[in-house]
Design a protein around this nucleic acid. Structure first.
Lengths: 104, 104
DNA sequence: AAATTATATTACTTTTCGGTTATATTTCTG
DNA sequence: CAGAAATATAACCGAAAAGTAATATAATTT
């Protein structure tokens, strides 16, 4: 799965919320429906997209489909932000320097 | 600017690429057009969206509009990924533990 | 002042997305 | 085995997105 696609998948707030729920434990589709404001097919549609992005896996237990988070692909996206960190940390440095100067 | 909107703004690859270019220095619209595969209006349209998301600022110098990165809002987005880091670092821990056991 | 350069905005088109309802599929239960 | 429960898929729709060509605006140069 490439980075562009992953960004797109994560752009949808319902999908991010689902991943957030899955951080704590596996969830059935029904549980995720209850936690969302969407219809069951709406949730299933998003789950399919998450599956195709390899952000979740499923395991069947009777009629229940248990979805589990797979966070690994998120790493790639998080990496995109790395080069930008220096900007906000350098802002902090500026502030520190300013304070240092005041103290002198 | 709220998180949902920011995610959406960043979902567009051309916009991310523009931000990447702006990491190094200010750029005029013309330069960004040259660096992209889009028409000038296309670039201007994306720049407007980046402006409205407060991810860039502009300063005019004669007919040139110089765009500059403002990375601060990215921090909020990067934060979303924090709770997920434990997943990939715990994977690493698992690997380490496995290796440790092998050594014993 | 006219022509040129740099950028923004408008108007329009095509495509994609997210949502819904209806339906199919699978498994459990009485 | 019939009905219920859980989920997925299909078909459809409206709204939004991204792109372009044409045009407006502003500053520059000759």
């Amino acid at each position: 799965m490439n980075k562009d696609k992953l960004f797109e998948v994560l752009a949808e707030p319902n999908r991010r919320r689902m991943l957030d729920y899955l951080r704590f434990r596996e969830r059935t589709v029904g549980e995720l429906v209850a936690l969302s404001s969407l219809s069951q097919p709406g949730v299933s549609k998003h789950l399919r997209i998450l599956r195709e992005a390899n952000l979740v896996s499923v395991r069947k237990e009777a009629q229940n489909h248990l979805y589990r988070l797979n966070a690994e692909p998120l790493q790639e996206i998080a990496d995109w932000f790395e080069p930008y960190r220096q900007f906000w940390s350098s802002k902090l440095d500026d502030l520190e320097n300013a304070l240092d100067e005041e103290r002198e």
